[in-house]
Design a protein around this nucleic acid. Structure first.
Lengths: 156, 156
DNA sequence: CTTCAATAGACAATAGGGTTGTCTAGATGG
DNA sequence: CCATCTAGACAACCCTATTGTCTATTGAAG
């Protein structure tokens, strides 16, 4: 019944708020587990890199940013020890990126947090409501559901 | 039944994706209505300014950023003609910000878009599902539901 | 084998937006 | 009247994004 009172105006902010509170909570948890330097972008970039080797250019394409921007993200990842860079034996131009053990650990901790968060939601909302929430969100998100191309700077 | 298959991992992206696709669609619509220069930040800032006069410092407090950052946002708003600046007759230090007619028009167009988007969702999801979606999102968002303090730069 | 287009990545310049620190002018209360 | 607070301007600096330019290497076509 609350929705009949709600204006269309009030729909977007909770979407963003839910995302932010979720990610903020994740990084609080990560910080308590020895990953205080982790930034939200790191997790997304590490996932985009994937379990196998990649190049900075390819990462840029996956994230939808320029290769220069990707290179800077990689520099940040390397600085905190989440990614290693080694020359490509096959291609003299390329530098192969690989997630380090610490990078993998960060992703594992994130996955564990998301699972726990998910279980908490199932308790708070009920399994059916959570299932419907996820279905509806995917429908609303559409093809953007899995991309975060050029998020920083997107508002401005 | 799809949620039983879903990992906790897959929850955050649709939240962000839904928000982005919504805002992107809004700005496509705005661009077609003669507001091509409008940026997402403008809408949020104009709403924070409110229908009455405000100062840049107050805007900074409302958005949760420094007054210098707010001043730059105001400069951007003034550049595209969404806000006017006039000296405060009561307070010699202050500069009163006021939304211009064009700023109000941008907000009206946005409101109309959100209403239309909302109606479309009600059709696609059904009124009950939409109501539940909104309730659940607000619960998940928690106190962050209405704030966008320091969004740019938050990821990094 | 040589030439030439495409690619990886580095470097520089530029554009924003964020922050803190400093400064002046005006408001305010003891 | 003076001490303190506030608004806003200005500067310096950090960070990320962009485009443009450059070298080195690859790979394919002549």
């Amino acid at each position: 019944m609350s929705s009949s009172e709600r204006a269309g105006f009030e729909f977007p902010l909770p979407l963003l708020g839910a995302f932010r509170s979720l990610i903020d909570e994740l990084h609080d948890t990560l910080a308590e587990s020895g990953h205080a330097e982790a930034r939200p972008l790191h997790g997304f970039a590490l996932q985009a890199i994937g379990p196998d080797d990649t190049t900075a250019s390819e990462l840029g394409r996956r994230l939808g940013v320029s290769k220069q921007a990707a290179a800077k993200t990689v520099a940040s990842l390397e600085r905190v020890g989440y990614v290693s860079r080694e020359p490509d034996p096959q291609d003299g131009r390329a530098v192969r990126l690989r997630r380090t053990r610490r990078g993998e650990e960060m992703l594992s901790l994130s996955a564990a947090f998301f699972e726990s968060y998910h279980r908490r939601l199932a308790q708070d909302l009920g399994a059916r409501r959570l299932a419907e929430l996820e279905d509806d969100l995917e429908q609303v998100a559409g093809p953007f559901g899995a991309s975060l191309a050029g998020l920083p700077g997107w508002m401005t």
